[in-house]
Nucleic acid binder design. Structure first.
Lengths: 163, 163
DNA sequence: ATGAATGCAAAGGTTTTGCACCCCC
DNA sequence: GGGGGTGCAAAACCTTTGCATTCAT
């Protein structure tokens, strides 16, 4: 499935085989049971909205979307739920927006790095095995063992584009 | 020049050839003139303290150091000066600390990426030509032209360490 | 019933802004 | 002298926390 970006590029929306898209419910349930936590309505609603996002989002926008449907859910609950979802391993912090706000995205997507166009602001995802492998080697030669990484390239579209 | 880190590693403090260490004064002056801005005492003091830092720092720590010597300089001025220094191209935002606070460092150092040890929290700098080259190629093949990048690897020390 | 989770409001912390005064050019 | 810069304090934000109440188990 392809989506046309403002810069004229096409980007996979990562609809994948469709299996992962429901996995989070299983994983979340398992995590909650393990920890003796509860599957409450507000918590599940935040999870539903968060996991339906296709790309990076910040908590403020999540709060807006959640409260548009369930105005009784407080911002504090959204913050608390997002933390729980991160601990459950189905969400991860990714980038920091220019304003320094933390952005999140599903932890169940395949790993990818990011290219941000400084002209049109679009966030493009890429994965390159050579880069990953070279990085792995470099890290190990320094005596470290990689856990995860965040690789963001600020760039400019070089192809004809329509801003 | 080597510095021993808490994890037992040694890291160059990048004292270099010594030429760059004064460059910022020239660059700042040039920038201020260009933009019709003024070389005021508080602004120069913030620059002096900021450029004397050897690694990443956050604004709060800068405020503390600046006010230790010049208590009359207000936090607002430090914020404003740091922004100016970034626009002048002698400082850059680098990472975001775990708390989401923006960290800065001199923009005149050689480019390097970062490894953050999730155990001891140390920020280790590395540069690997293979990684850089592979990235360059990957970005170009996607139709982008790199401007700058931020590559942070969260890892664990694998060598014996003293925390 | 029991303790986790929520909503609300208040607190905490960082960064920005308005404005009168100051001082570099 | 004029306009940018500063200090101060207030405001604006984002995020966390305390507490009484609600609700899942």
């Amino acid at each position: 499935m392809l989506k046309t970006l403002p810069c004229g590029k096409k980007q996979s929306t990562q609809a994948h085989s469709g299996s992962k898209n429901q996995d989070w419910k299983v994983l979340l349930d398992r995590y909650l049971k393990e920890k003796g936590l509860r599957a409450t309505r507000p918590r599940e609603h935040v999870a539903e909205v968060a996991m339906s996002r296709e790309t990076h989002f910040d908590i403020q926008s999540l709060i807006k979307e959640v409260r548009a449907i369930h105005p009784e859910i407080s911002p504090a609950t959204v913050y608390r739920s997002v933390n729980t979802l991160c601990e459950a391993g189905i969400l991860t912090e990714t980038l920091q927006s220019q304003g320094g706000v933390t952005l999140y995205e599903s932890a169940l997507e395949d790993h990818h790095d990011h290219i941000i166009c400084v002209d049109c602001g679009i966030i493009f995802e890429f994965h390159d095995a050579t880069v990953e492998k070279a990085q792995q080697k470099a890290i190990e030669s320094q005596g470290f063992e990689e856990i995860r990484h965040r690789h963001v390239v600020y760039a400019r579209c070089t192809q004809p584009k329509r801003i």
